[in-house]
Computed example of a mutant assay.
Amino acid sequence: MPRLFIDAPLAVGQILQLPDDSARHVQALRLREGDPVVLFNGTGGEYTATLSFSGRKVSASTQSFLADDRTPAHRFILAQALLSADKMDWVIQKATELGVAEIAPFAAARSTIRLDDARAEKRLAHWAGVARAACEQCGMNRVPVVHPIAPLSAVARRAHDEHMGRLALAIGTQRAPHELPPPAADSATMIVIGPAGDFSADELTLLDHHGFARLGLGPRVLRTETAGMVTVSMLTAVWRLI
């Protein structure tokens, strides 16, 4: 059944006109009068609804609420060094599919991407849309938070101050995911992924200072856009979080 994100309060028995982007999506799918859809607004749960049409306007009538959340009990925060537009979109999309709760982009010393304030703001709005669309596809009812681009120092300090589990993927590290103890209940883990050129020596010192444990994924060197997805997947499996 098609799923649509609606950035508005939802309630049973409501009739609402769909925003233009959702209406275009409905029309692209060639849905018809009375067809069922699922609506969600990112606060948890979802609503069954049926469609009605008036010219190019599309409305949905909500019928029932399902409390199904599908959010993993353990919160992963993926801190990802800035990537090119297509690669960053892919990371956000796949992280959402894996149930990551937050994505924190940061500018690394060896990042090849540099964004001024205006471009960063536009990119952030775009990334939020990517996360919403990924939720529509994968069944998540809570949209991951995509944070504004920040320095690595601020990202690391937040993880330290909030007492998160802290992991940094670093080339040449021998400690593997299956060697890590399982997390405490209702806790969170931040995973920091560096750029293609890996962390600088100063960045590794910074991460060490804030209590990040270095983690490795074996003898092969993964692309930075792949590394975070593999790490989240492996920890989900070895910690039995599914």
Rank of each mutant, 00 (worst) to 15 (best):
P9V: 10
P9H: 11
G13D: 11
Q17E: 14
Q17N: 14
L18V: 09
D20Q: 10
H25G: 02
V26Y: 04
V26K: 12
R30L: 05
G34I: 08
L39V: 10
G42N: 12
G42M: 13
T48D: 09
F53E: 00
K57S: 11
A60M: 10
S61R: 13
S61Q: 05
F65H: 08
L66Q: 15
D69Q: 05
L82Q: 05
T96G: 00
V100Y: 09
E102M: 02
L115P: 00
A120Y: 14
E121V: 06
R123Y: 13
L124H: 02
A128D: 12
Q137M: 12
G139L: 03
M140S: 13
R142H: 03
I149W: 03
I149C: 06
A150S: 14
H163G: 14
R166Q: 12
L169N: 02
G172Y: 15
E179C: 14
P183E: 07
D186I: 08
I193C: 00
G194F: 00
E203I: 01
E203P: 07
L207E: 00
D208F: 09
D208L: 07
H209M: 04
F212R: 04
R214Q: 09
G218R: 01
G218M: 08
E225L: 02
T226D: 04
W239Q: 08
I242V: 15
